[in-house]
Amino acid sequence: MREITYLQGIQEGLREVLKTDPTSVIYGQDVGAFGGAFKVTEGLQAEFGEARVFDTPISESAMLGAAIGMATQGMRPIVEMQFADFITTAMHQLLNNAGTRHYRTGDAVPMVVRVPSGGGTGGGPFHSEELETYFCHMPGVKVVYPAFPSDARSLLLSAAQDPNPVVFMENKTLYRSVKERVGDDLTALPLGKASVRHEGDDAVVITYGAMVHEALRAVSELHVTEGYEVMVVDLRSLKPYDLDTILAATAATSRVLVVSEGWRTCGYAAEIATAINESAFHLLDAPVHRLTAPDVPVPFAKSLEDRYRPAAADIVKALRDLIEL
């Protein structure tokens, strides 16, 4: 066993794909010799050569279009967006071109798009966005969002084995802050499987990405202060998502808080809340609550961003409201 960071988890996943799948390539802006804006691909070009790991012009649409072309001709492209925010200049390639292709033609489009996501870094409105709702709304596209190093590694392998376009979201605040002891066993994790990170029966927090860690901090605080036992479900895959685990958690706790770093209106949290209402309304002791970012652009100043972004203290408060309702 050795300790690795979230970033290393992603990197080990990438290295494993390059090693085991000769049709795979990694490209994006500054991902080659430089190793990427966050150094996720550091060393990979030196190890695998310029044909397998290479820099592209700043052309998000051409990058994704080319990925569709490669994927349909026997290759497995893994494309890095420098920041999630910039994929908006190429949304049509994902939604319309990649996402509709199998349905219309029957052709497989095995490609992975890595999107460094989320705020909390003082990145301001254009280097902090959390866009899972957009991706999850696209027919034909799958979305994963690991919160732990081992999951990052395994989900990268599964994303790179899937015959569909997969958006691999990775959270920038977790890159170096989250560490985990892992073995060398590299196995792919099936998509669509959540993980219960903390057991409890007073309530459940259903969340993903960086908010998993905020939730874990919140539930241990609540345990110390009030003695509550709160379950934490880490969704890991956002589309498809693990409805069975969500419903089992609902049945076990009867009180559900969905937490998301994304925007509120029509956001991903609304989807989970609705799914629970449709299938498990009779099991609830309280309405499903949502804790999300407000519907405002991601602000720059720390005072504003701290208020903007859900954190452990907000989750503690929301859970108290929910449990004591």
């Binding site: 279009g65 080319a66 072309g69 001709q73 319309n96 219309r104 033609t105």
Partner: peptide, 24 residues
């Protein structure tokens, strides 16, 4: 390739396809 309506969006798709074929 089966086009999508979005004008201009298919040029990069063929570019990527040709890259793949050349590698093969």
């Amino acid at each position: 390739y089966t086009m999508i309506s979005h004008l201009g969006s298919m040029i990069s798709v063929v570019a990527g396809g040709v890259m793949a074929k050349r590698r093969q």
